[in-house]
Every structure is written in C-alpha cells, then in structure tokens.
C-alpha cells in the first residue's frame, strides 16, 4: 500500500510539473483559459444575466472554474493510457495508477484555481459567509465525480477508441451549454429544468454558488443522497475499469 501511494504521488507530481512547465508562470498560463472565458462571457452576457442574477461576476467565475476542472481533467485522463503506452506495456504497474495520477495532477491545479476563484469572488464584492467552510465538502464531491465516476470509464474508452478524444471534446463543448455555467437555472423553461437534475456538474456548480454567494448551507439530506449516489456510481465505474484492466495494453496496441 505504501508503495502504491508513493508511486501515485511521484507519477502525479511528474505529470503536474510537466503540464505546468515546472514553475508558477506555467500555472498562470493554465489560468489564462478560465480567465479568457470569464472576460468573453461576462462581456457578452452581463447586461442580460446581470439583471436576473445579482453579483453575476462571482456567479460566472464559480461556474467556469468548476466546469473547467471537469472538462480538462476528464479530457486529460481519457488520453492517459495512450500517451503512456510504452510505460503501460513495459512496466507491471497497477493500471489505475495511470488514471488516478493524471486525475490527481488535474486536482492540484484545480485547488490552486479555487484559491484564485475565492480571491476573485471577494474582489467582486461578495461578502464572506460562514458557509464558505463547506467548500471542502463540495470539492470532495467533485473529486468523487471526476476521478471516481468519469475517469475510470473514460480511460477505458480512450484506450479502446483512439478517436473518442474528439467525441469527448464535442460532448464537453456541448455540455457547457447544457450546464448552468454562465446562466441561472431560472431562465430554462420549467419542463426542461428536470434535465439539469441529471447533470452532476450542474449539481456541483449550484451547490458551490449556494454556499459562496447566497450564504446558504447544504441540505444535509440532499447532500447525503448526492454523496451516496456519487459513491455508488464511482464503485460501478471502477468495477467496469477492473473488468477491462487485463486487456488495456491490448487496446492501446491494437
């Protein structure tokens, strides 16, 4: 077990250092994408959304940061087995190390982005609420969602189907419009709002806005139900991954 976690730490560290080019300026480049999204979406929609949504700037940055983590980390995990084909086919390492180390490197960047997001939220005039201390619970849900539910399945599909990367890019691109990243749920027609209930990223974003902007707590029963559901889906996803684990090298070689 000790060796497993040491390997996980080392692989995640190396992935993060390479992605962020081993310095703070590399990380700042990574922040450029959500920042540009913010500037464009804020510029386009503030006049319309700003009327319906108080503190639209904070509202928007929260949506962008959470969706960015989901989109970037799942896309990176999807290609991890093919990117490391030679490592996969030459070293008898636990296969889940590849997906969890990649996911973990994405999580480290996300935690830094969350700090920047909080600073931004404060800068935009949002008062501090005691409910901000609930943010780690939402991050925990996010980790279960991205690393537990999506990553194992996507890693298998990315290994089996080399062009699935393009399909996922398309889906996450469309997904941004099907997730209340830059719009409030209230502008969606009531009969279509139910669809958003099945969007796990939407759940995370709404919970985050609730505690950071509105200062309202998380309903214990609702949070517990979501937590249990996410854990069950993560267990199913991991079981799917374990079923395909012996064949992953064949998938990337074929």
């Amino acid at each position: 077990m000790r060796l497993y976690f040491d390997r996980l730490f080392q692989m995640a560290r190396c992935e993060w250092l390479v992605r962020e080019q081993s310095n703070l300026f590399g990380f700042l480049w990574t922040m450029l994408q959500p920042l540009l999204y913010f500037v464009v979406l804020f510029g386009l929609f503030t006049k319309w959304m700003g009327q319906k949504t108080p503190n639209y700037g904070a509202f928007l940055v929260i949506g962008i940061v959470h969706y960015n983590f989901f989109q970037n980390t799942t896309s990176y995990v999807l290609t991890t087995l093919r990117r490391r084909t030679t490592l996969l086919t030459n070293f008898p390492l636990p296969r889940d190390l590849f997906i969890f180390s990649t996911g973990l490197s994405g999580l480290v960047s996300h935690l830094l982005e969350l700090l920047v997001m909080l600073a931004f939220v404060v800068f935009l005039g949002t008062p501090f609420h005691a409910t901000w201390f609930l943010l780690p619970l939402i991050v925990a849900l996010e980790i279960i969602m991205v690393l537990g539910i999506f990553s194992p399945m996507l890693a298998v599909w990315g290994a089996k189907f080399p062009d699935f990367e393009r399909i996922w890019q398309l889906l996450t691109g469309l997904g941004m419009f099907l997730t209340p990243v830059f719009y409030p749920v209230s502008i969606i027609a009531p009969d279509k709002r139910a669809l958003l209930r099945f969007n796990p990223v939407a759940m995370i974003i709404e919970m985050s806005r609730r505690i950071l902007i509105e200062g309202r707590g998380l309903g214990i029963r609702h949070f517990a139900a979501v937590f249990i559901l996410f854990c069950a889906l993560a267990a199913a996803s991991y079981a799917y991954f374990k079923k395909h684990e012996p064949h992953l090298a064949d998938y990337v070689l074929s």
């Binding site: 080392q10 390479v18 490592l87």
Partner: peptide, 20 residues
C-alpha cells in the same frame, strides 16, 4: 527509457524510476 520525463531533472526522474 519509456519511464522518464525528459523535461524534468535527473533527481525527479530518479524518484519516479525508483518507485516504478
């Protein structure tokens, strides 16, 4: 040679190789 990251230092790679 497939285990190393060329952009990282020798020491970083030693730790990675060692755990692998």
């Amino acid at each position: 040679g497939s285990a190393v990251y060329g952009d990282l230092t020798v020491e970083d790679n030693l730790f990675l190789l060692g755990t692998i």
